[in-house]
């Protein structure tokens, strides 16, 4: 290693906030993309072959469509999503002062429906909610993740970290056992990644559809034979927030493709 690199590395270490044991240093954080083979990467890279783009297009329609008893479209309040929604997904879950807790992008969309459109909430994993969140998050593609920077979010980030470290389920495994300690290894032949939440909602070939980060987390929980937390539960929101803060600085990829 060159002297310069050693100095740069040392400077990084001293400048960065102290890492907790087992955590991945910022310059070693890698999206799930970097664990994929060339075919799946190509599918994500080319908008005409990325199946997630169909949802983004649907979301664009919904963005402009009036709904609810207020008869308003998202666009009536937020205008052109390409500018107004830039970077928004990269900072969610975000602390909501009125509710005094962090809310996910899905929850934010449903809060807007309730408060401003007077429309019924869209169910989790429904096509319309996935389409809207894909469309909004797509406007952050390339933007660096900043969620969790807000000091008010800190207790919730900490709660999420605790859940990440907690062994659970009949198999008695914690998220950290796989995604901090064993990434780059293979679980029954399939690569284990760092579990970075950069591309959600994303198209998973295994699912044959777009899915939310919460769906993915619930699926890892069923994998260890634990009782998965409810969609929208404080625990899942805290985990989501911790994962986003753990991915700080990585660029958003929505809609990503994963095997």
């Amino acid at each position: 290693m060159s002297v310069w690199r050693a100095i740069a590395a040392a400077a990084l270490v001293s400048a960065a906030p102290a890492l907790l044991a087992g955590e991945i240093p910022p310059d070693a954080r890698r999206s799930g993309y970097s664990f994929m083979g060339p075919d799946t990467r190509a599918m994500q890279d080319d908008d005409t072959s990325n199946p997630g783009m169909l949802f983004v297009l649907d979301g664009e329609q919904l963005w402009g469509k009036k709904t609810g008893s207020a008869d308003k479209a998202c666009a009536n309040c937020h205008g052109d999503a390409r500018s107004s929604m830039k970077g928004v997904a990269a900072r969610h879950p975000a602390f909501d002062k009125t509710l005094d807790r962090p809310v996910t992008l899905d929850q934010r969309i449903n809060l807007c429906r309730a408060n401003h459109q007077q429309a019924a909430p869209l169910p989790y994993e429904s096509r319309d909610l996935l389409a809207l969140s894909a469309y909004v998050a797509h406007q952050s593609r390339g933007a660096a993740i900043t969620a969790g920077d807000d000091p008010q979010a800190k207790p919730f980030v900490d709660q999420g970290r605790e859940l990440f470290m907690q062994r659970e389920g009949q198999l008695n495994l914690a998220c950290t056992n796989c995604h901090d300690d064993n990434f780059d290894k293979r679980l029954a032949g399939a690569p284990i990644t760092q579990g970075q939440p950069t591309g959600y909602p994303l198209y998973r070939l295994e699912w044959q559809t777009l899915g939310s980060l919460e769906r993915r987390l619930r699926s890892c929980m069923s994998g260890v034979r634990a009782q998965a937390y409810e969609y929208g539960s404080p625990e899942l929101v805290a985990l989501e927030l911790y994962l986003m803060s753990r991915a700080r600085g990585l660029p958003m990829e929505t809609p990503a493709v994963r095997p």
Binding site: E168, G169, Q170
Partner: peptide
């Protein structure tokens, strides 16, 4: 990380 295959206690949030 190897699970204990013949144990049913001391575990957290085991699925129903």
């Amino acid at each position: 990380i190897m699970p204990s295959y013949y144990r049913a206690d001391g575990l957290v949030r085991v699925g129903r």
